[in-house]
Amino acid sequence: MTTVSLQTEFPRIDAVGLDGLLVRFGETLDEPANRAALAYRAALERASPEGVEECATSLVSCFVRFDPLAVTPDALSTRLRAILDQQDWYAAALPEGRRLLSIPTVYGTELAPQLEEAAQVAGMSAEEAVKSLSDAQVRVTAIGFAPGQPYMGSLPEAWNIPRQTALTPQVPVGALVVAIRQLVLFSVTTPTGWRHVGQTAVRLFQPDSDTPFLLRPGDEVRFPSISRAAFERLKDDPMGGLSTEALE
């Protein structure tokens, strides 16, 4: 079997198993690398190279699954490299069809009990933390870990706080958690090492819908603060009071 050589600089193309290639734009999350991954995936889907069966983005890379009976890794790598050479992907326009979503969130209370702890680690009061988080507009950088679950960033530098050293035994569906300048909104009930700072009523994964994943990579999201009473009124709404507008 032929193998794909690994480049030493980014972007580079790595082999993943027998039927995958990973186009990598960086080692760690930053805005240009995430932008590049999103824009490159959109271009690749438009180009539809022979043998490609699936494309998916992570924080800073684009995974390409292919049919090894239809195309060799070397041939596909050459095609992917040709697309890479078309432009500076780190400065590329983001894909069309992105949306700005506003998801009402109650911060703190017994529903999100780690707000004050997270605020202290970030060097803020609880009130300052709520304002910072509710004023932020973050990009969905990737979907992963659980169905429809978004990773979103980047928050201001003050939120470059570590994950916990121990696990919280369980957070509910709709939990908003924070660490390392990112927000994650949970689509399932699960243990986590991220601090639970807000609670929403939205259901990110709706398997009976034509579009089961509510959010998409490249979307931008705000989490405006609402009262506990307002949250209670939204609990029976699977959209959790979400509002949406198109982004240019």
Rank of each mutant, 00 (worst) to 15 (best):
7 Q>R: 13
210 D>G: 12
182 Q>H: 10
94 L>A: 06
227 S>E: 06
200 T>R: 08
42 A>N: 05
16 V>L: 14
151 Y>D: 06
141 T>S: 08
25 F>V: 02
71 V>C: 07
129 A>E: 04
178 V>R: 09
137 Q>H: 05
25 F>I: 02
188 V>A: 14
208 D>E: 14
17 G>W: 01
245 E>L: 12
229 A>E: 15
26 G>E: 08
85 D>H: 08
162 P>D: 07
123 G>F: 01
60 V>T: 13
7 Q>A: 13
48 S>Y: 10
166 A>D: 13
138 V>I: 08
172 P>A: 07
202 V>P: 01
52 V>C: 03
154 S>R: 10
56 A>R: 11
66 F>I: 09
187 S>N: 05
94 L>E: 09
86 Q>S: 15
53 E>C: 12
68 P>D: 04
226 I>H: 03
226 I>R: 03
105 T>E: 04
50 E>G: 12
42 A>E: 08
47 A>M: 10
68 P>I: 04
93 A>I: 05
221 V>N: 02
219 D>Y: 01
119 A>Q: 02
205 F>W: 15
19 D>F: 11
95 P>L: 01
68 P>K: 02
97 G>P: 08
95 P>A: 03
71 V>Y: 04
42 A>Q: 10
53 E>M: 14
231 F>P: 07
225 S>V: 14
78 T>Q: 14
118 A>Q: 07
24 R>C: 11
202 V>H: 04
112 A>S: 08
65 R>P: 00
172 P>R: 04
46 R>H: 13
163 R>T: 02
126 A>M: 09
20 G>T: 03
197 V>A: 00
34 N>P: 00
126 A>F: 08
19 D>M: 11
42 A>Y: 02
188 V>F: 10
83 I>V: 15
183 L>P: 07
148 G>W: 05
26 G>C: 09
178 V>E: 07
182 Q>D: 08
196 H>K: 04
59 L>Q: 10
174 G>F: 01
11 P>Q: 02
120 Q>A: 15
157 E>A: 15
93 A>V: 04
34 N>Q: 05
178 V>S: 04
116 E>I: 08
110 E>W: 11
99 R>S: 08
181 R>F: 01
229 A>T: 14
72 T>E: 13
